[in-house]
Amino acid sequence: MTTIASDLPDHWPSISNWITFLLALSCGLIVANIYYAQPLVGPIATELRLSPQAAGLVMTMTQFGYGVGLFFVVPLGDLVENRRLVVSVLALGAVALATAAYSTHPVPFFAAALCVGLGSVAVQILVPYAGHLAPERIRGRVIGNIMTGLMLGIMLARPLSSFIASVSSWHAVYAMSAAIMVLLALLLRQTLPVRKPQARLGYGALLASMLHLARDTPMLRRRALYQAGLFGAFNLFWTTVPLVLAGPDFHMSQTGIALFALVGAAGAISAPIAGRLADRGWTRPATAVAMLLTSGGFALTLIAAHGSSLSLAAFAVAAIAIDFGVQGNVVLGYRALFMLGAEHRSRLNGLYMTTFFLAGAAGSAVGAWAYAHSGWTLAAWIGGLLPMAALIYLATE
């Protein structure tokens, strides 16, 4: 008999370690689809005969599709049975990945890239779903464990796709992920408990209600803006640092830059730590520490002349500190928002993610602009000031 998770999460006695692991693994595998293409822009653009200006669309279309899905698909978790919704979105992602794998012309590839981003929002349906399954006493810990899987997916996607493309081609990366999404959809369909939301709204009313939630939920606005400052700094760092490392001071190869990105993956350990701190009621001081760590990471990169061993070590420590702060803070935000009620949890997640996702996109653009105009120093100052602005806002809480 199929298990049904109540819409009142505290009636759900516990969540098994197997389900927690499966959700963490799923989130990592799904979110990786957004980042596989980042180191493959060059070979994709060459094979599809894209101009340098159009090459940027390889990532932009995927991110745009993800942003659209955050606002228009993720809120359906408050309306549609969650397991069925996740499987449907994964199916769309699998078809899109397969289409991208066999594309030889720009138009079908860009259409597929858009749908890859749209299909990847399944991860943001699973996160609030986990919040429903986990009882209140361990909700922060469960969300933290699942976010560890998600962050490892983000960090490992780029070096993994670089390695596969080096021994085969970029087509193999998309084909591999398409097959994984099919298997994952079948596994989740057979394993996850059913969760039927209690909402009886129509889709239009559901979207309209998000405006009321944004207006009437101070906690949502605060947590979204806190994370916007940190995630903008995070994207600024990871957009700009590869340019610094590949530049005349460090002369690092793409393989070296990929290995450097693996260093940042160590910051993923902050997610379960942040979840446990939140469960103990220490959300506010932990938020302040996350902001200070993120800002301090940028300061570290300015202590030594670029090109030296000390400078490279400082960048590595900064990557860990920034990732530690940003990933810890996003879990603290989830824990706070998921305490506000089960009936609109997916809509809160959609608004939360959309806000700081847009800030992250802006951070990438600002970082590239700052580096082009005044080098890393200006980029580091901007990146360090964003978390400090969030800290000043936190002081008014």
Results as ranks from 00 to 15, higher is better:
Ile269Leu: 11
Ala274Pro: 03
Ala278Cys: 11
Val317Lys: 05
Leu245Glu: 08
Leu236Ser: 06
Gly307Ala: 07
Leu236Phe: 10
Ile257Met: 06
Leu213Phe: 06
Ser308Lys: 10
Trp282Leu: 14
Arg280Gly: 08
Gly267Gln: 05
Val244Asn: 03
Leu225Gly: 00
Leu245Ala: 10
Ala316Tyr: 09
Thr217Val: 03
Ser308Val: 04
His306Cys: 04
Gln254Glu: 15
Ile320Ser: 00
Trp282Gly: 00
Ser311Trp: 07
Val317Thr: 13
Leu277Arg: 15
Ser295His: 04
Leu207Met: 14
Val317Ile: 11
Arg284Phe: 00
Ala258Glu: 05
Gln227Leu: 14
Ala258Asp: 13
Ile257Tyr: 11
Trp282Tyr: 15
Leu211Lys: 08
Gly229Lys: 02
Leu206Trp: 12
Thr283Val: 15
Val241Arg: 02
Thr239Trp: 08
Ala208Phe: 01
Pro248Cys: 07
Ala224Met: 10
Ala268Gly: 11
Ala305Cys: 01
Ala274Asn: 07
Arg223Gln: 14
Thr283Ile: 15
Ala208His: 12
Ile320Cys: 05
Met291Ser: 05
Ala314Met: 11
Gly297Asp: 02
Ala304Lys: 05
Arg223Ile: 01
Ala286Gln: 11
Leu207Cys: 07
Arg276Ser: 13
Arg215Gly: 06
Ala208Asp: 03
Ser209Tyr: 09
Gly247Asp: 10
Ile269His: 10
Arg222Trp: 07
Gly297Asn: 01
Leu225Gln: 06
Ile303Arg: 15
Ala224Asp: 08
Asp279Ala: 05
Met210Asp: 01
Leu213Arg: 06
Leu277Ser: 07
Gln227Lys: 00
Phe231Tyr: 15
Asn235Cys: 08
Ser253Arg: 02
Ala214Glu: 02
Phe250Gly: 05
Ala290Glu: 04
Ala214Asp: 03
Ser311Thr: 07
Arg280Lys: 13
Ala271Gly: 05
Pro248Leu: 10
Leu312Arg: 09
Ala261Pro: 04
Leu259Asn: 06
Gly275Pro: 01
Ala314Arg: 04
Ala305Ser: 13
Ala208Pro: 00
Val241Phe: 05
Phe298Ala: 00
